[in-house]
């Protein structure tokens, strides 16, 4: 059935993004892939409820997030590993980042409250609008905006970005800020 194959191809296209989001939620790569696997199975089972032409990525992120929090409720003792979130298997080439160690940034990200980190990643890295992120997180748009805003503010404090910080944007701005990226996180 051709519609099945099309849906499968569309699922495949979103997997890299699902994995990145799952990594930000659970930290460990194998657990992230478990989560993606469960998401794919659920998405396939309920594929008839997806309207072709609408936002499949958002639909899948919603399923993944629901699955994650459902699992969290089931096994409360198994909490996410903030230290490991997105950090374990990311190898970063130091020369890409000027003087600021990417490890510092990862640590700062991982100290954010879960809801703020999630909102920041959806909007700042996954490419969702505030409205889409609000749908995924099943909360008000204003709540997402507030979480993103607070997340940014805390990161700036942690990393001493504002004022006389030792890292500051100046450390890398000359090299990397002029790449034409105008979006903000």
């Amino acid at each position: 059935m051709s519609s099945s194959y099309d849906f499968r191809a569309e699922l495949l296209a979103v997997i890299p993004n699902l994995r990145a989001f799952a990594m930000s939620l659970v930290g460990a790569a194998d657990k992230a892939d478990d989560l993606v696997q469960e998401t794919l199975v659920r998405a396939w089972d309920k594929r008839s409820s997806f309207t072709p032409g609408t936002n499949l990525k958002g639909w899948l992120f919603t399923i993944l997030r629901n699955e994650f929090y459902s699992q969290m409720r089931k096994r409360k003792r198994e909490v996410p590993d903030p230290e490991g979130a997105m950090s374990e298997r990311l190898s970063i080439h130091p020369e890409q980042f000027g003087r600021m160690d990417m490890e510092d940034f990862k640590k700062a990200i991982n100290t954010l409250p879960e809801d703020q980190r999630e909102a920041l990643i959806l909007v700042g890295a996954s490419g969702f609008s505030y409205e889409e992120a609000a749908e995924i997180c099943q909360c008000a748009v204003g709540t997402i905006k507030s979480r993103v805003s607070r997340a940014r503010a805390q990161l700036a404090r942690t990393l001493h970005l504002e004022g006389d910080g030792e890292y500051g944007p100046d450390a890398v701005s000359v090299g990397v800020m002029n790449l034409g990226s105008t979006s903000i996180a």
């Binding site: 997105m86 890409q96 990862k106 890295a125 700036a156 504002e162 800020m177 903000i184």
Partner: peptide
């Protein structure tokens, strides 16, 4: 409800965030 960050700081955070995320996407 949060202090307004400078454009540079926001851009800096966004850049780092995407680097981190895109590494997994890749």
């Amino acid at each position: 409800d949060a202090p307004r960050l400078s454009d540079d700081s926001q851009a800096f955070i966004g850049l780092k965030l995407r680097e981190l995320y895109d590494d997994v996407v890749a």
